[in-house]
Amino acid sequence: EKTLKIVADSEEEAEALAKELAEKYNLEVTIERNPEEEGKYVITIKIKP
């Protein structure tokens, strides 16, 4: 299993990107607040072998 993390500037941007990735590529995608940067969100994508 591989994990890729993407940082987005807004929750709306994160949700839109996560939804597109999940639907288009059938990936497991989660969104959470970035504890290191206020106002940023981390999109985590898990790629199963």
Rank of each mutant, 00 (worst) to 15 (best):
Y25S: 05
L27H: 13
K19L: 08
K40F: 04
E36Y: 09
K2N: 15
T30A: 05
L4V: 14
L17D: 00
E32H: 03
R33D: 06
A22G: 11
E37Q: 08
T3D: 14
N26K: 10
V42K: 01
E13S: 07
E12Y: 10
L27D: 09
E38F: 11
N34H: 15
K24I: 12
P35R: 08
E32C: 07
I47P: 04
L21E: 00
T30N: 05
E38C: 11
E1L: 06
L4Y: 15
N26V: 03
A22P: 00
L21C: 03
K46V: 14
K40N: 03
I31M: 05
E36L: 09
K5T: 15
K46F: 15
K40A: 03
A14I: 02
E13T: 08
L27G: 15
T44G: 01
P49M: 08
E12A: 08
A14G: 02
K48M: 09
L4A: 06
N34C: 14
P35A: 09
I45W: 07
I6G: 02
T44I: 11
E15H: 10
Y41P: 01
L17I: 12
N34S: 13
P35I: 10
E23A: 10
I47K: 04
I6K: 02
Y25W: 06
A18V: 13
E12R: 07
K19I: 07
L27N: 10
R33G: 05
I6Q: 02
E15R: 11
N34F: 12
E38H: 12
E37S: 09
P35E: 11
A18F: 10
E23M: 10
K5R: 05
K40S: 08
E23I: 09
A14R: 01
E13F: 08
I43D: 00
K40M: 04
L4G: 06
E36V: 07
E20T: 12
I43V: 14
E38Y: 10
L21M: 13
I45T: 02
I43Y: 01
E11L: 13
E37F: 10
I6F: 15
P49I: 11
I43P: 00
K5V: 15
E20R: 14
N26Y: 07
A8W: 02
P35K: 10
Y25K: 02
E32P: 00
V7N: 15
Y41F: 10
P49H: 11
L21K: 01
L21F: 10
A8P: 00
E13W: 08
A16P: 00
G39P: 05
P35F: 12
L17M: 11
T3A: 04
I45D: 00
I31A: 01
I31E: 00
D9C: 03
Y25E: 06
E38L: 12
T44H: 05
Y41L: 03
K48F: 12
T44L: 10
K19R: 10
K40V: 05
I45F: 04
E11R: 11
A14S: 02
I31G: 00
V7C: 15
E15P: 00
